[in-house]
Design a protein around this nucleic acid. Structure first.
Lengths: 152, 152
DNA sequence: ATATAATATTTAGGTAGCCTAATAATTTAT
DNA sequence: ATAAATTATTAGGCTACCTAAATATTATAT
């Protein structure tokens, strides 16, 4: 039986498994889901002060999810006053999304806690190891993406 | 604003994000969900030839999920003839689960493809880097577990 | 100028993978 | 012997996604 063949592969699999179920996106501190926080964060990150807002499709590609996923998240965020939608004047198919004041302060609070824990992680691992980890993970990502591309 | 403070933390966050949505458990090759394959695999791994089967609770703790999650997966797997339930004679609260013939051949096929891709990954990264990655991921896991333990 | 195609978003309705609370059956502890 | 604990199950819920189809609008081709 093929099951135990490569102990390193086995070890890696187990590490992935464990890591995968780690909830590092945590902190619904502020009553928002992680996915909502990610959306707010990616709006904030890509919206300069006087911008009319970011496109829905820009958010979804930033987060690598499908458009309808973002639409739905935005629906809830708008209903709760975290973001505003406006229609783009130049191209009226596109919707511009930006943070409200409430959205701003909320995302600051949420990402504060969030980055604090990541800063702690960098301290825990050390800067060099942290960098290396980020790079190796990117490499792993590439590997599986290629694998998927090559076998349909 | 606190958002961009530590570029390493930022980089790590992005790597995690990407990695997280990687579907490395892939291969519903055989018409089973990944979670079902994981269950079959963990049964196989812990069931010696003449064993009466593994307990539901052993599976759930092996996979770190709640008991009802396993019960439900087993329901489907049993309905489709991959596993059998028998009641334990010594302790009639416990249910013993084991693979049927179909379950055996199926899990072999599924884990074959699965381990092949992991062996490929080990080749891609190199053995040393692979080992290191597994260890660092375990360390990250520890960090977040402690963090969670310390702040409720 | 109009029909056609492409683009952007939304609506509707899934699915996978988990969870908790409550219940039933049985075993263990007092 | 009764209370408490353990094992598994049922029921129902939640998050984070997805695809297909509908709707608007804009761009292109004839």
């Amino acid at each position: 039986m093929t099951v135990y063949r490569n102990p390193i592969a086995q070890k890696l699999l187990e590490a992935f498994s464990q890591f995968h179920k780690l909830n590092w996106k945590q902190s619904p501190i502020v009553g928002l889901k992680s996915s909502e926080i990610m959306v707010l964060y990616s709006i904030k990150k890509r919206t300069p002060p006087e911008s009319p807002g970011i496109k829905v499709s820009e958010i979804s590609s930033a987060l690598s999810v499908a458009n309808p996923t973002i639409t739905q998240l935005i629906n809830a965020l708008e209903a709760n006053g975290y973001v505003e939608r406006t229609m783009d004047q130049e191209d009226r198919r596109v919707v511009r999304v930006k943070l409200t004041g409430k959205g701003e302060t909320t995302v600051d609070k949420a990402t504060g806690a969030f980055f604090e824990s990541f800063n702690g992680l960098v301290d825990y691992l050390g800067e060099e190891e942290s960098n290396r980890l980020a790079e190796v993970l990117a490499k792993v990502y590439r590997y599986f993406s290629e694998l998927k591309r090559d076998n349909p």
